[in-house]
Nucleic acid binder design. Structure first.
Length: 572
RNA sequence: GGGCCCGUAGCUCAAUGGUCAGAGCAGGGCGCUCAUAACGCCUUGGUUGGGGGUUCGAGUCCCUCCGGGCCUACCA
């Protein structure tokens, strides 16, 4: 038994996430967490809402709520949706928690003591009308290069030229349209990542087997141009974690807060502390996951995230942890994902394009989405959601191959033997061969799951379901029954046990369906089938069961067309 | 502009430089009748984006061209 720490990239507070966000971090992290638990490992699975930053303030302003209230409300909404998708977090925290305030300020203090913080005076655009400094991309104006009138202060979307906000002609606030912008001097803290470049570089080099996507992005940042640049870790905002040096004030930094990307990863740690508090445990309970000098030496730490998050997890956050000079647990493996596209374009939160988590659950139960999303996870390249593909995959894999197997076995047994596991007969060669084929496939499934090869795991699991249908076809208990009822009883006894085995194996992908299967069998034994023969004899003769409702209803053409039309344009 | 990734069957995707490039779906044929018209077996289908090169051997390595995508540090 190992101890596995799993974190999923934090969803931003600013609205409901779409399926692309879900499959890029939380869902595969949940799959892995569930798998690790099923294999008997001790798991700490952490996620949280990422609540600070300009977009959160603006979203709150739009609804007229105080930002703290807005975040509390949206945290509730996201928590509900996480439950809806059966995301099995040990704790779903908030980056605005007191724990995160303390830890973030602690790290800043340690970094300052280590000489890794620089104070930099810089000029930034301020909008008196908005009462705030404007991040570059919140300034719009005419592109000096191509004349595009809605160029952003960081880059012109039309001609892709990199811009400085002061380059823009007729600049205005993208928030209010105000044109009375001025340049003000302000002081900010920078994390001196450049001083840690070699250390980070060596650390990345020492990691074996990370996805190309992960290491190539890290290497690019480390070696591009002059190498890794220092990074501003404070902002002039109201909502956030006040800049402090540990518990002490930071002269000259009054009224400023830490940058979200500084405090968000620290929330992984803080959320574990939140968990401990919620469980009524002491600090040692969470520190044994995070401090190698306090018990985390044998922890394996795995992070899940979309590719846009990679630089912060490979560089900034490790720099924060290493730079503190304290023995914090560093990540051991980073599983990163590409993007899921929607009907040939991108899912888009701002444009409301695609299917969002709340809408998905209104349409179908979570298992349908979990299965499709995970079996098509964008691991090697961007992948594509289409309604046709979704319908075909779900109907074939879930309804026909798995669901129908459960149906045919339980209904056949009920009609010939009644609703209890039938007695009689003994295994022959066919059953031994099946057990050995299953053992082989299960080993492959286990290996793919352990390696976090998501799509390959799904394919192996499906192949295991197919073995059951093949067995039934060959054994043909419906004809055996006419001449040799005892053998038919043995065959169907095995098939009923196969349902339990499938439930145990499928639980990480399909928690609800697995539960329904177990409930129908009136069984609570989720034991992983390490010994397949034993697993296929687990339910004894005479054990009662019930025929379950149809596990997965098929998606009709009408429903598919209806949804395709409904989600074709912007979110209503 | 720079960097990275991808391009394989109608579709979605596999293949440490080494048998005849494989699966699932879709298509075609056969079988079965327990089951959600479900299941099983067989089968059609490829100049691996184009062109060069290295090698005994290239989907895989190198060059080049075409096409798609991502990142490029003040959104997060």
């Amino acid at each position: 038994m190992a101890r596995i720490l799993i974190t999923s990239a934090l969803p931003y507070i600013n609205g409901i996430k779409h399926l692309g966000n879900l499959v890029g971090s939380q869902l595969p992290a949940d799959l892995y967490a569930r798998y690790c638990r099923a294999r008997g490992h001790e798991v700490m699975f952490i996620c949280a809402t990422d609540e600070h930053g300009t977009p959160a303030e603006l979203a709150a302003a739009k609804t007229g709520e105080p930002v703290a209230d807005y975040c509390a409300r949206m945290h509730g909404v996201q928590t509900e949706l996480a439950h809806g998708f059966r995301l099995s977090f040990d704790h779903y925290g908030r980056s605005s928690s007191p724990q995160n305030h303390r830890l973030t300020q602690h790290f800043a203090g340690r970094l300052r003591a280590a000489g890794l913080i620089a104070e930099v005076a810089e000029k930034q655009v301020y909008s008196p009308s908005d009462g705030r400094f404007l991040p570059d991309r919140y300034i719009e104006g005419t592109c000096p290069a191509c004349g595009y009138e809605r160029a952003r202060g960081d880059q012109c979307e039309n001609c892709t030229k990199q811009l400085d906000p002061t380059d823009l002609i007729d600049p205005r606030s993208a928030i209010s349209g105000a044109t009375d912008l001025e340049v003000r001097e302000t002081k900010h803290l920078y994390l001196r990542q450049s001083a840690m470049r070699d250390q980070l570089d060596q650390w990345i080099d020492s990691q074996k087997g990370w996805p190309v996507l992960t290491t190539s992005i890290a290497k690019k940042w480390l070696h591009d141009g002059d190498g890794l640049r220092d990074r501003g870790i404070t902002r002039d905002l109201d909502w956030g974690i006040p800049v402090k040096d540990g518990e002490n004030d930071w002269p000259g930094m009054e009224g400023k807060v830490f940058y979200v990307w500084f405090d968000a990863p620290i929330e992984y740690i803080a959320a574990t502390a939140e968990w401990a508090e919620a469980q009524g445990l002491d600090d040692a309970a969470w520190r044994r996951w995070w401090r190698t000098d306090e018990g985390a030496g044998d922890v394996r730490y795995v992070q899940f995230m979309g590719k846009d998050n990679v630089p912060f997890h490979t560089l900034s956050f490790p720099a924060t942890l290493m730079g503190s000079g304290e023995p914090w647990k560093l990540v051991d493996y980073i599983k990163s994902f590409n993007y899921l596209n929607y009907n040939g374009g991108q899912f888009s939160t701002s444009q409301g394009r695609g299917v969002f988590m709340d809408q998905a659950l209104e349409i179908l139960p979570s298992d349908y989405w979990r299965w499709w999303l995970l079996s098509h996870a964008p691991e090697n390249s961007d992948s594509e959601f289409t309604w046709e593909n979704f319908q075909a995959s779900v109907n074939k894999d879930l309804a026909d191959v798995l669901g129908n197997f459960v149906s045919r076995v339980t209904k056949f047994c009920r009609s010939k033997f009644g609703e209890a596991v039938p007695e009689g007969g003994a295994w022959g060669e066919r059953e031994t061969a099946l057990a050995s084929a299953l053992a082989k496939r299960i080993a492959a499934y286990d290996a793919q799951m352990a390696a976090m090869e998501i799509r390959k795991s799904a394919a192996e699991l499906r192949a295991i379901w197919v073995l059951g249908n093949e067995y039934l076809q060959e054994a043909a208990p419906w004809s055996t029954f006419k001449t040799d009822p005892d053998t038919a009883a043995m065959q169907i006894r095995l098939a009923l046990n196969l349902i339990r085995l499938y439930a145990a194996l499928a639980r990480p992908f399909l928690p609800d369906a697995a539960w329904s299967m177990m409930a129908a069998l009136e069984c609570e034994d989720w034991t992983w089938p390490e010994d397949v023969e034993a697993a296929l004899k687990l339910l004894p003769a005479g054990h009662a069961f019930t025929v379950p409702e149809v596990l997965f209803a098929k998606i009709t053409d009408d429903a598919r067309e209806d949804w395709a039309a409904r989600f074709a344009g912007a979110r209503p």
